[in-house]
């Protein structure tokens, strides 16, 4: 019965993803994307990746989407200011995306995927085990991300600053 949780979450994520790209109002797009991210966090919990589920909620729903909402608010966007695309361009975009999906599905259909372990039994996603891997094998990349964040911060401040002349 609990297998249906996966299908329910998948349905929610695909539906909200479709609503993100089809909603006229950018604010609605942001809110649907938050819902989509929450359903993806649910998928992570089903896969027993608890650390990533929490980080996903904190980083995506907590930080990134709030940033998006602030920018949409700041630029005062609504359905009226939304630029329109011609019907032909929309149709070709849908066909292009659908063909990409078709290519991926047909390419992977014959692939044999043999699970080594059931996600319920794998304990790699727990905070303790992932922390050990992160601070032993991946210590250098972990430290380098601080440099990345510093440069991103400097870049964002520099870009957001008004010109003083």
């Amino acid at each position: 019965m609990t297998e249906y949780i996966f299908y329910f979450l998948s349905f929610v994520s695909v539906l909200t993803a479709l609503l993100v790209i089809s909603a006229r109002n950018p604010v609605h797009s942001v809110l649907y994307l938050i819902l989509c991210f929450f359903s993806i966090a649910g998928h992570y919990i089903l896969l027993n990746a608890q650390f990533l589920a929490i980080v996903h909620i904190i980083v995506y729903s907590g930080a990134i989407m709030v940033l998006f909402l602030f920018v949409v608010m700041l630029l005062n966007m609504n359905a009226e200011s939304e630029p329109k695309k011609p019907m032909f361009a929309k149709l070709s975009a849908v066909i292009a995306g659908g063909s990409l999906f078709l290519v991926i599905v047909t390419a992977l259909k014959k692939a044999e995927m043999v699970p080594v372990i059931s996600p319920a039994e794998s304990e790699i996603g727990l905070v303790k085990n992932l922390g050990k891997v992160l601070f032993n094998d991946f210590l250098l990349p972990f430290e380098i991300t601080s440099v990345l964040f510093l440069s991103a911060m400097v870049g964002a401040v520099l870009l957001g600053k008004k010109e003083l002349d």
Partner: peptide
Amino acid sequence: CIGVMGVLLRRN
């Protein structure tokens, strides 16, 4: 693919 579609579909 929905993401790809969104990039192609929208102008905002």
